[in-house]
Simulated assay, not measured.
Amino acid sequence: MKRSSAVIRRVVLAAAAVALAAGCTPDASGTGTGTGTPSASASASSGTPGASPTDSPTSDGKPPSPSASAPTASPSGSPSASAGTAAPKPLLGDGDENEQVRELQARLRQLDFFDRAPTGFYGTMTAGAVRKFQASRGLPETGSVDETTWQQLLSASRKPTADELKPATTNKLDTPDPRCMTGRVLCISKESRTLAWMIDGRVVSSMDVRFGSENTPTREGLFKVEWKARDWTSTIYHTPMPYAMFFSRGQAVHFSADFAARGYAGASHGCVNVRDKVKLSALFDQVKVGDKVVVHW
């Protein structure tokens, strides 16, 4: 009896050991704590480990070519240009300085989009003029010049002359004061900072001018040339005043070396400074004592 009980006990223990061994294997979902074995469904969907669908050989035994539908990445990781239309490359833009910029400005000036003499430098004023031209032609208002903008400008304007590319007068002439429309007149505009030598309403020559400071302003009004001096030195400030044409109690039109060197960074003591010595020399020979002088805004 004891022998039978021992046999039965061994059979029960062996069955329990088999049951415990089966319970230690992770389930097919992979939620158990061991490494386990992937389920059959997972293995079927992934195929051979480490291989993508295009890595397997084709039916003719050759490696497959890359999928035509896969986008090509640029070095920066963005899609290639084929995914969209690239913006036109600008020919000219902010900060450029060359003769093509000078021609651009001269052509824009012909069309009244640029109201300064060409400088050859592409800055904010040039960009603004380009935007106005682009708007007038129905082009994107970028402010820079691409091939389309340039070709449109060429068709709308003519080739600039040498005087248009490098005019002696930087500032655009103002509308003449009515008092300048008759006789022989030095018509001087504070608004445009220009002097126009006019005879019977026609502009004979013009040049840039500079005026007195707030403390020593240039007087405005209708005057006449009182006297002239080709070589003169100020008796007050002891500075040279070549080609002086006096019109109002010591105030005169004359050449200024300081104006030629520093431009509008300085000011006169009330005189009308001219910076183009060659043009003023020619003007000096034409103007007579008694000719009108009009200084206006």
Score class of each variant (00 low, 15 high):
residue 60 D to L: 11
residue 33 T to F: 09
residue 200 D to Q: 12
residue 94 D to C: 01
residue 267 A to Q: 12
residue 262 R to T: 09
residue 244 A to I: 06
residue 21 A to N: 06
residue 144 S to M: 04
residue 144 S to P: 01
residue 62 K to P: 00
residue 208 D to R: 15
residue 129 A to N: 08
residue 14 A to W: 00
residue 111 L to T: 09
residue 17 A to D: 02
residue 185 V to H: 04
residue 20 L to Q: 04
residue 225 V to W: 01
residue 116 R to K: 15
residue 207 M to Q: 14
residue 124 T to D: 14
residue 114 F to N: 03
residue 227 W to N: 12
residue 143 G to I: 02
residue 167 P to G: 12
residue 282 A to L: 09
residue 284 F to C: 05
residue 189 S to I: 11
residue 196 A to M: 14
residue 76 S to W: 06
residue 57 P to G: 00
residue 279 K to E: 14
residue 184 R to N: 15
residue 190 K to Y: 08
residue 76 S to M: 03
residue 68 A to P: 15
residue 219 R to P: 04
residue 65 S to A: 15
residue 275 R to Q: 13
residue 6 A to N: 04
residue 86 A to S: 14
residue 228 K to F: 06
residue 193 R to I: 04
residue 234 S to Q: 00
residue 89 K to M: 11
residue 220 E to C: 11
residue 195 L to D: 11
residue 198 M to W: 06
residue 276 D to I: 08
residue 90 P to I: 02
residue 126 T to L: 01
residue 55 D to K: 02
residue 40 A to W: 01
residue 88 P to A: 06
residue 92 L to W: 04
residue 60 D to G: 07
residue 192 S to L: 07
residue 82 S to K: 12
residue 56 S to M: 08
residue 141 E to G: 05
residue 270 G to K: 09
residue 252 A to R: 03
residue 192 S to N: 13
residue 28 A to G: 00
residue 287 V to Y: 01
residue 167 P to H: 13
residue 72 T to P: 02
residue 44 A to W: 00
residue 268 S to C: 07
residue 131 R to A: 09
residue 101 V to P: 04
residue 262 R to K: 15
residue 115 D to W: 10
residue 167 P to C: 13
residue 236 I to Y: 12
residue 132 K to R: 15
residue 178 P to F: 04
residue 109 R to L: 09
residue 217 P to G: 10
residue 144 S to I: 05
residue 172 K to W: 10
residue 197 W to K: 11
residue 35 T to E: 14
residue 113 F to M: 06
residue 72 T to Y: 04
residue 205 S to I: 06
residue 183 G to K: 10
residue 120 G to L: 07
residue 173 L to P: 08
residue 134 Q to N: 08
residue 266 G to C: 08
residue 112 D to K: 13
residue 98 N to Y: 05
residue 172 K to I: 06
residue 253 V to R: 03
residue 77 G to Y: 05
residue 294 V to S: 10
residue 195 L to V: 10
residue 53 P to N: 01
residue 260 A to V: 04
residue 173 L to W: 03
residue 197 W to N: 08
residue 67 S to E: 09
residue 71 P to E: 06
residue 189 S to D: 14
residue 277 K to C: 00
residue 135 A to E: 14
residue 223 F to P: 07
residue 158 R to S: 15
residue 15 A to F: 00
residue 97 E to W: 05
residue 169 T to D: 01
residue 132 K to D: 14
residue 121 F to M: 11
residue 184 R to I: 09
residue 193 R to A: 14
residue 40 A to K: 00
residue 61 G to N: 04
residue 128 G to C: 02
residue 205 S to W: 08
residue 253 V to F: 06
